[in-house]
Amino acid sequence: MSNTPHELIEEFPDKVEIMRELKVSDAHFAKLFDQYHEVNRAIHRAETNVEPTEQLHEGELRKQRMALKDEIAQLISAAQTA
């Protein structure tokens, strides 16, 4: 278990400018970006026992974070090729 937050800026360090542009120009991307950070913070709080949660719930949050990250990565990739 990692207690290090998985911030998008750390996950995609070479895509920071594209993410900034997409947050402004693409409402769907902005929504996914915000959802990712909300879920990521919940996971971090659970990992550090600030807000303990059941393992099953934490696992579901991790799956949700991965799905959001995958969709964000796809949108970043599409924006790079556009």
Rank of each mutant, 00 (worst) to 15 (best):
F29G: 02
A30D: 13
A30Y: 06
K31S: 14
K31E: 15
K31Q: 12
K31I: 08
K31H: 10
L32V: 07
L32I: 08
L32W: 05
L32Q: 04
L32C: 04
L32S: 02
F33E: 09
F33V: 05
F33I: 05
D34E: 14
D34W: 03
D34V: 10
Q35E: 15
Q35V: 01
Y36D: 01
Y36Q: 01
Y36V: 01
Y36C: 00
Y36M: 02
Y36T: 02
H37V: 02
H37Q: 12
H37E: 12
H37K: 11
H37N: 14
E38T: 15
E38F: 06
V39Y: 01
V39K: 02
V39S: 01
V39W: 01
V39I: 15
V39E: 04
N40R: 06
N40Q: 09
R41S: 12
R41N: 11
R41M: 12
A42P: 02
A42I: 10
I43V: 11
I43S: 02
I43E: 05
H44G: 03
H44C: 07
R45M: 15
R45D: 15
A46G: 13
A46R: 01
A46Y: 05
E47W: 06
E47R: 14
T48R: 06
T48L: 10
T48D: 05
T48Q: 05
N49A: 12
N49D: 15
N49F: 13
N49E: 15
V50F: 03
V50Q: 06
E51G: 01
E51N: 10
E51M: 12
P52A: 10
P52L: 14
T53Q: 07
T53K: 06
T53I: 14
T53M: 14
T53S: 08
T53V: 15
E54K: 07
Q55V: 13
Q55K: 07
L56F: 05
L56S: 06
L56Q: 07
H57M: 09
H57F: 08
H57N: 07
H57A: 08
H57W: 09
H57G: 08
E58Q: 07
E58T: 10
